[in-house]
Nucleic acid binder design. Structure first.
Length: 701
DNA sequence: TCACGTCGAC
């Protein structure tokens, strides 16, 4: 019999004439290796029918394997062949189940297994690992348990190693770590796969510490490991910041010539990134001979996690130049970077790209978008995304609630909190940070008190230091300084510097000198003093007319050489380009243009009644330079640059690394009025939406 | 036939 001359390669050029005179010894080679397209498959199938060879189970099985597993798009074809088989045996079923799993049709794989049982087909040791894999992927514990029962029926306790390994993985994937561990402990012989299965199980459940611990145990016992082991372990090293073990793996990989393993190198890149060594990660990345989307994403994420977001975005550009298609995961890190930078235009472009590429709006991607819009001061964007998401979880709700709170829409944040409860989504500790900060922004003192109590009473969530901090802010902001002070004194956990600093800020706003003094003492006791804290007290003295004390604090700071707070830095994005300004920085490429624009801007608002407030000037500035010093604060430079580089009426968006100072706040209010611009200024803590001479924060921040 | 790398709210 001749298989005629027909195209056996994708080039459609006849490449081989294959002669089959009898039942082939090697149907696998014949069918699998020569069948490269669906068309090949068709022709071979036809021949097998004609020659009745299809009735040989081994032949049918191999044809099915071609269709179901090797060819990318022939699952339906495989199913039609399978349905034509009179009484498919276990091999045929096994191939089909594997094929479905291969195509990520896990649910169908389990259904086919059910069908196999109903038709009383003999199960074998090849059936179980496959179908258990489907259960693992779906987290289908009940089905997994039933299959476990079947296994007991078929094999008793002495089932095959493959089967046991997949049982471990199934239980672990379904969150049943103890059962997984029991199976592991009771296995008489464990191979590398066994260890890898349990390691992967711990990893999947976030038990990274256990992954590292178990690997050390493996080494003590002298158990062999392989590249897959190292992937799990190096990933775990990143999560628990075990740089030492991570570096050991890196050296091992180098010494054993494993640099070609893409997944392994990617896990090392991830590990270095998470340990804060992104430059080392970069070196590994640069040495790779092939980089896929995961490798790129891992490095982009590394940069964003150490707050080098501009470099993260640069890398994203390079990724596109390298023609590597980003996926949902890449976009999450990119959006995170845009959010951190306040790069609204770039992020909007990312969203457009997501739509264009028809990427799935997964819960994580949606949440990243909500957070991005909120952090760019565009809360309408957050709500729009939230409404469009096909499914949401506690992260998505919390991101929205937090976004509403920081954008000054406290009441709306509480409405969403109510809605969330109606939808039976349980809030967690972070959600409560969001709603408590909403209460403080909206001045809802009683509501805040109630929620704080309800948190532990109704939800069983123990308040953390952040929750106490929120309560101090709620009380202090409302002028209840004494109550806030007593609240701190009665806290069951030690207050930290942040809590006392919050009270100090309230004392300044409400002119409470006595508690203000004590608050600063406590801040200094808990943390090396920062100039910003001392300036708060100095300004508090000045505000009640105690100028001598104000001066004394400033002089003390000079004498002691108090640590300066990080230099002020503001970012503005124009046409997708991010410009960065530092206070009194002359080295900027647009320096002259910027300083001229700033002076012009200041002149214009002065004639509208602006009076410089130099209390926040640099301490080392000479008296006559103080005005110049505050007028060159980074946010003023960025706003001035925005004014000359955008068309009239455009909203100006600036984000700053520190809290905005009194003088800049006053000036910006006037700028919004004089230049008829909306200005959205994001500072370290919250948003200021300036419009027609006033600010959304009502001058308290 | 089983195990493996990138991502979200303080």
């Amino acid at each position: 019999m001749v298989l005629a001359t027909h195209p056996l390669s994708p080039s459609k050029t006849p490449t081989a004439i294959t002669t089959i005179s009898e039942f082939p010894h090697n149907p696998k080679t014949l069918i699998l290796h020569q069948c490269k397209t669906t068309k090949d498959l068709n022709q071979i199938h036809a021949h097998l029918i004609k020659t009745r060879l299809l009735h040989h189970p081994a032949v049918a099985e191999n044809l099915l394997e071609s269709a179901a597993i090797l060819l990318p798009d022939a699952m339906d074809y495989a199913l039609s062949i399978f349905r034509q088989i009179d009484r498919p045996d276990s091999s045929a079923y096994n191939v089909m189940i594997r094929g479905l799993i291969h195509k990520k049709l896990n649910h169908n794989a389990i259904l086919l297994f059910k069908n196999m049982c109903e038709n009383s087909v003999q199960l074998d040791e090849f059936t179980f690992p496959s179908v258990l894999k489907a259960c693992s992927r779906l987290g289908a514990l009940r089905e997994g348990e039933q299959i476990h029962a079947q296994i007991m029926k078929y094999f008793g306790f002495n089932s095959d190693g493959f089967v046991q390994n997949t049982l471990i993985h199934m239980y672990a994937s379904c969150g049943e770590l103890e059962i997984a561990r029991n199976v592991f402990d009771e296995m008489p012989r464990r191979d590398v796969m066994t260890w890898n299965s349990i390691l992967a199980g711990y990893a999947k459940n976030g038990r990274w510490d256990e992954v590292v611990r178990l690997f050390r145990e493996m080494q003590e016992l002298g158990v062999e490991f392989d590249e897959v082991t190292l992937i799990s372990v190096s990933t775990a090293c990143g999560r628990v910041a075990d740089l030492e073990l991570g570096e050991w793996i890196d050296e091992y990989v180098d010494a054993n010539g494993l640099k070609g393993n893409l997944a392994l190198i990617t896990s090392l890149i991830d590990m270095y990134g998470k340990c804060g060594q992104v430059d080392t990660a970069r070196r590994l990345f640069d040495q790779m001979d092939r980089r896929d989307v995961v490798a790129w994403s891992a490095l982009i994420s590394g940069y964003s996690q150490v707050n080098r977001c501009r470099e993260a975005l640069d890398l994203f550009k390079k990724m596109q130049e390298a023609n590597v298609e980003p996926n949902e995961v890449t976009m999450v890190s990119v959006l995170y970077s845009c959010a951190a930078l306040g790069a609204l235009e770039t992020g909007k472009w990312v969203r457009f790209y997501i739509k264009k590429k028809k990427m799935k709006l997964t819960v994580i991607l949606g949440t990243a978008l909500i957070d991005f819009y909120a952090k760019c001061g565009s809360i309408e964007g957050s709500i729009e995304v939230f409404d469009k998401m096909p499914s949401r979880n506690v992260f998505s709700w919390t991101a929205l609630i937090q976004g509403l709170a920081s954008n000054g829409q406290g009441k709306k944040a509480l409405e969403y909190f109510k809605l969330m409860q109606e939808k039976n989504i349980d809030p967690n500790d972070v959600t409560f940070i969001g709603i408590l900060s909403a209460c403080s922004h909206a001045g809802l003192v009683d509501e805040g008190r109630k929620l704080f109590i309800s948190m532990s009473n109704d939800y069983g969530i123990e308040p953390r230091i952040e929750h106490y901090g929120c309560m101090v802010d709620i009380l202090g902001r409302a002028g209840l300084i004494q109550e806030a002070y007593e609240f701190i004194k009665n806290m069951p956990i030690q207050p930290n510097a942040v809590v006392w600093r919050t009270l100090l800020a309230s004392c300044k706003a409400h002119k409470n000198v006595r508690i203000g003094e004590e608050s600063l003492k406590n801040v200094i006791r808990l943390e090396p003093a920062h100039s910003g804290d001392c300036i708060l007290l100095s300004n508090l003295y000045a505000s009640v007319g105690r100028h001598d004390d104000a001066l004394r604090v400033r002089n003390q700071m000079k004498e002691k050489g108090t640590n300066k707070t990080a230099p002020g830095c503001s970012l503005i994005e124009l046409d997708g380009e991010i410009y960065e300004f530092f206070a009194e920085d002359n080295r900027h490429p647009h320096s002259k243009e910027v300083y001229n624009a700033t002076e012009d801007m200041m002149r214009k608002i002065k004639s509208a009644g602006y009076v410089p407030n130099v209390t926040d000037a640099r301490l080392d500035a000479e008296e006559e330079d103080k005005e110049a010093s505050v007028s060159h604060h980074s946010e003023k430079l960025a706003i001035a640059f925005g004014l000359i580089r955008t068309s009239p009426g455009t909203t100006i968006r600036v984000s700053k690394n520190l809290r905005v100072c009194t003088d800049c706040h006053n000036a910006t209010k006037l700028i919004s009025k004089v230049f008829k611009r909306e200005i959205v200024l994001r500072d370290r803590n919250r948003f200021h939406h300036f419009k027609q001479g006033s600010c959304s924060c009502n001058d308290y921040w």
